[in-house]
Design a protein around this nucleic acid. Structure first.
Lengths: 242, 242
DNA sequence: TATCATTGTATCAAATTGGTACAATAATCA
DNA sequence: TGATTATTGTACCAATTTGATACAATGATA
């Protein structure tokens, strides 16, 4: 599907998809003490969007979300969680769809699949930034990481979807041990604390955080990490599932 | 829509609905220190089900859920919360649909709307038992309250949907002050404690529960409730939103 | 008027959390 | 080589929250 003619045909005769339902993914990574989100930019437009897609008619919902994210990140078996369904009747906009497709040289016929009403199931994905290789889809120029405080205006209700994902993530963070999905296999307690502070948006007291995390019995101490800095070297830890 | 011929026509020429998407409601009430769930039983079958329905093509998702529950309970402005989407490809079963419709004297044609794949959005509803008037839909004989520990085998994945609702409710109970939706306007602390104990499935220490609830500053003390029992009368309280 | 069960509140110990302190240590630099 | 520096791991104590028991007050009953 590299030639435009193929793309055109693909979008005009979409394979068998589940009607009315789409998936949008709030895909988060953590790099240099910053939370990052993966966003697409559509070709020849100023529209930014969450990575998303549709469900094949013979595909489980969860599998569809995994597939969509694998296509954008190259990763399998991603930590994914549903968080909300967005179903306002006017959440999408035909004109925007036409512009996006037009940016790819495709004119949508009035009865096109895309011009129907869709609800969107929101998933948040927590991934190891260092392992992902973002790649755009057929309709987009770029698939890039953005700092959470520099998210552009997104199309449709995607900013709202992001906000809801972040709220849910904050709530879940002290409900389940999900933060580790955003870190590499080994990390220092300080890195873990940075992650928590970034997600929760507040400073935590270092000694208390350390005490809390170690008392959970979910961290395995590996070896010291010589940072090269003029101070005591921190230990590296590994998350043990339990 | 009282005559069978109307019903038949209705189901064969459904009004414009959003394809592929249904709503199922885990509707909870609280009566005599017991949590109750509202279930339907389809005519001339042994199939029990959660109350549910479809989304009109020009209807917001949230409105659809409210409408569906209003039809089953007579209540408006119900406390409703999405909790999960159930989207396994084989979660439904054509044969069961045929049996249910057949129980109402309707033979489904092969291309009937109902025989497509559906995902279902789960909502839980917390309602004031004393205010609801359960009424069955066109396909069901009964719409009744069942004790949570006496839930029959439900059709499709409805037992699983119920379980997930209960898990979510338990988690939410100490996240938000939602329990009050299950009580009448005024109640005693003891009634509130019974409710919490029932949802959480564990006993709580009376004095500590009382201290906790009163310290939240969300209860307004009204007057004493003379129970007629040979003991000190408890105060009635009212929930003040905040 | 004594009895009874339940309520509202007090009390105290145990556990958790918030915040500070300090010795240990890896690199740097005089 | 030894002092300097920033950060780490942990100890410590006060403040707060939670768990569990105790007890006086009270509304009905007999």
């Amino acid at each position: 599907m590299t030639k435009n003619i193929d793309l055109k045909e693909y979008w005009e005769n979409k394979p068998r998809l589940l009607p009315s339902v789409s998936i949008d993914c709030v895909t988060l990574g953590f790099y240099k003490s910053q939370l990052k989100i993966l966003l697409l930019k559509y070709k020849n437009t100023e529209y930014y969007a969450l990575p998303g897609g549709f469900i094949n008619i013979d595909e489980d919902l969860e599998d569809a979300a995994q597939r969509i994210l694998e296509e954008r990140t190259g990763l399998r078996n991603i930590y994914l969680e549903q968080f909300h369904v967005f179903g306002n009747k006017n959440r999408r906009n035909d004109e925007t769809h036409r512009e996006i497709m037009s940016g790819c040289g495709i004119e949508l016929k009035p009865n096109n699949f895309l011009l129907n009403r869709f609800i969107s199931i929101g998933y948040y994905a927590l991934i190891d930034f260092s392992k992902a290789t973002p790649s755009p889809d057929e309709l987009s120029d770029t698939c890039q990481w953005y700092d959470l405080d520099k998210i552009p205006t997104l199309m449709f209700d995607h900013n709202e979807i992001f906000q809801k994902a972040l709220e849910t993530l904050r709530m879940m963070l002290d409900e389940k041990l999900i933060g580790f999905n955003l870190l590499p296999e080994t990390f220092t307690i300080n890195e873990l604390q940075n992650l928590y502070e970034t997600i929760l948006g507040e400073k935590l007291v270092r000694s208390n955080f350390q005490r809390k995390m170690l008392s959970l019995g979910i961290l395995e101490r590996i070896e010291k990490k010589m940072t090269g800095a003029a101070n005591k070297a921190p230990y590296l830890y590994k998350f043990i599932g339990r």
